[in-house]
């Protein structure tokens, strides 16, 4: 150990002097100090990080929602469907509104697309005349199948998993 590290400033001699143990115990006490302080800070830090992370890294479980009865979703046209999703925001039970689009060529298999633009999250609109999705925010355009036609979106609209049950179309959001 470098002796210089433990140099103490001079005291005014009329006040007294450094005790012998002021020098001799420094190394040991420093070790003790940093050990217990390190232990405490590790406990406090670890607990705090866990507390602050909370459930923020847990991905939402997802849910099957009802898009509609098949007879209400005739083939050959685009259907805009709004849905309510039950959510838990920390302890708060709530509902989240979302938009999706359903399309079928033949009435037996459906393509269900999320209505959220993959660029910056605005809601896209179906343009029936042009037969394409248009995002009003930055003019991203998507095909009926959700593929990017032009504009800034980096990838196709999110295609949702679907299934048909008791004459109803379900999608997993």
């Amino acid at each position: 150990m470098d002796k210089h590290l433990y140099n103490l400033p001079d005291l005014e001699s009329e006040n007294g002097e450094w005790d012998e143990r002021a020098h001799s115990r420094q190394g040991f006490l420093r070790l003790c100090f940093w050990s217990v302080t390190g232990l405490s800070l590790t406990a406090v830090g670890g607990g705090s990080v866990r507390f602050l992370l909370g459930h923020s890294l847990t991905a939402p479980a997802g849910e099957w929602i009802e898009v509609g009865a098949l007879n209400e979703l005739p083939p050959g046209q685009m259907h805009r469907v709004t849905y309510l999703l039950r959510t838990t925001d920390l302890w708060r039970k709530g509902e989240l509104r979302g938009v999706l689009y359903a399309y079928s060529e033949d009435g037996s298999s459906y393509t269900v697309l999320s209505g959220t633009c993959t660029h910056l999250g605005c809601n896209v609109r179906w343009d029936d005349a042009q037969q394409q999705f248009a995002c009003p925010c930055h003019l991203g355009l998507f095909s009926r199948q959700g593929e990017v036609l032009s504009g800034p979106p980096p990838k196709a609209l999110n295609r949702l998993e679907t299934r048909i049950e008791n004459g109803k179309l379900l999608a997993f959001v």
């Binding site: 005291l11 115990r25 006490l29 420093r30 100090f33 217990v36």
Partner: peptide, 23 residues
């Protein structure tokens, strides 16, 4: 009272130990 030890590490170590025990 005419002999002295420095605040760190002499005093702070005891406080830190008691503080850790409290935690």
């Amino acid at each position: 009272s005419k002999k002295f030890v420095p605040f760190f590490p002499h005093w702070m170590t005891l406080d830190a130990m008691i503080g850790t025990a409290l935690l």
